[in-house]
């Protein structure tokens, strides 16, 4: 039986530790800061997260580049050559074109590998929402599930991964065209924190706003508690964009309300970070089926 490689991309914000633990690889996107392009590495070899968020705070425009055809061709070929099938867990197609590019490249390559399969799955989520789906894929592959079985499970389970995110502002998301929000979320609103979920379509959806940092963190913890299912048996993720103390506060607030198996603490990577902006804090977990 052919082995299955599970790939994801730079938006999954999945740490080296987790990638090693679950045998995952990822396709690199890129960021341009002040016109200069850098690979969107999740291991930060060329710059620190603080540097990139610092630039954003200074007003430097940070743009993102989706996974290129070249990157897809290189990585897909690498695993196909090893005789493996591929499951690519892609960033929400509502946020990135990578999912589509991946499918196009797969169709280009597959005629050369008649026995191989490449499945691209739209995570309809990003960051660790996407990361958790990739971990699930890896576990299914280990259990010996087929590519088709894995895809079917992921396409069902993606409706159960929750994102509860508080940003400083919607300015970055709006500028990047990556948010669905009514006009209630714009304008001069000092101290107001928009709360974003990832909806069934995989869009960042501004669902409410909360006044003040502490209150917004408390609100996120409440939503985790209200929506989580089977907390004792799952790891959840808390990530931040250059605001570690907020992430720690959120972790403590969640633990005060629910007994989870554990919390992966992490950093929102450069791609998602460029969209949500510095000061963002977010929790990902598996819970009730999404309603929106």
């Amino acid at each position: 039986m052919r082995q299955i490689a599970v790939l994801t991309d730079s938006t999954s914000d999945i740490s080296k530790e987790l990638r090693d633990e679950f045998g995952l690889d990822y396709l690199k996107m890129a960021v341009t800061v002040d016109g200069k392009e850098y690979p969107a590495s999740l291991d930060y070899e060329q710059y620190t997260p603080s540097w990139i968020y610092g630039e954003m705070r200074k007003g430097t425009r940070v743009k993102t580049v989706q996974v290129t055809v070249e990157e897809f061709t290189k990585k897909f070929t690498e695993y196909l050559e090893k005789g493996m099938d591929i499951v690519y867990v892609a960033c929400s197609s509502a946020l990135s074109g990578s999912y589509n590019t991946g499918r196009v490249v797969a169709e280009e390559l597959l005629p050369n590998y008649p026995d191989a399969k490449i499945a691209c799955v739209d995570a309809r989520n990003s960051s660790m929402g996407e990361g958790f789906l990739a971990i699930e894929a890896s576990n299914l592959a280990k259990e010996g599930k087929s590519v088709e079985e894995i895809v079917a499970t992921l396409e069902n389970d993606r409706d159960y991964y929750h994102q509860w995110c508080a940003t400083e502002t919607l300015t970055y998301l709006a500028r990047a065209g990556r948010v669905a929000a009514g006009k209630a979320f714009f304008g001069n609103m000092l101290g107001m924190k928009p709360i974003l979920i990832s909806n069934l379509k995989g869009e960042n959806f501004a669902i409410k706003k909360v006044r003040g940092r502490k209150s917004s963190i408390e609100e996120l913890a409440n939503e985790v508690a209200n929506n989580i299912v089977d907390p004792e048996n799952q790891m959840i993720a808390v990530l931040h964009a250059d605001d570690e103390s907020a992430a720690n506060m959120l972790k403590e607030a969640i633990l005060a309300k629910v007994n989870v198996k554990g919390v992966y603490m992490g950093i929102i990577g450069p791609i998602i970070g460029a969209s949500v902006g510095p000061g963002t804090v977010v929790a990902y977990f598996k819970g009730k089926k999404l309603e929106l």
């Binding site: 009514g182 006009k183 209630a184 304008g187 001069n188 609103m189 000092l190 107001m192 706003k209 006044r211």
Partner: peptide
């Protein structure tokens, strides 16, 4: 200002809106 920034101008239910404003 705080009351206004809490509310959603597109809300059509006046009771909900008044509650939001009050909390603001």
């Amino acid at each position: 200002y705080f009351a206004l920034s809490m509310m959603d101008v597109d809300e059509t239910d006046v009771e909900t809106q008044l509650e939001t404003i009050q909390s603001g």
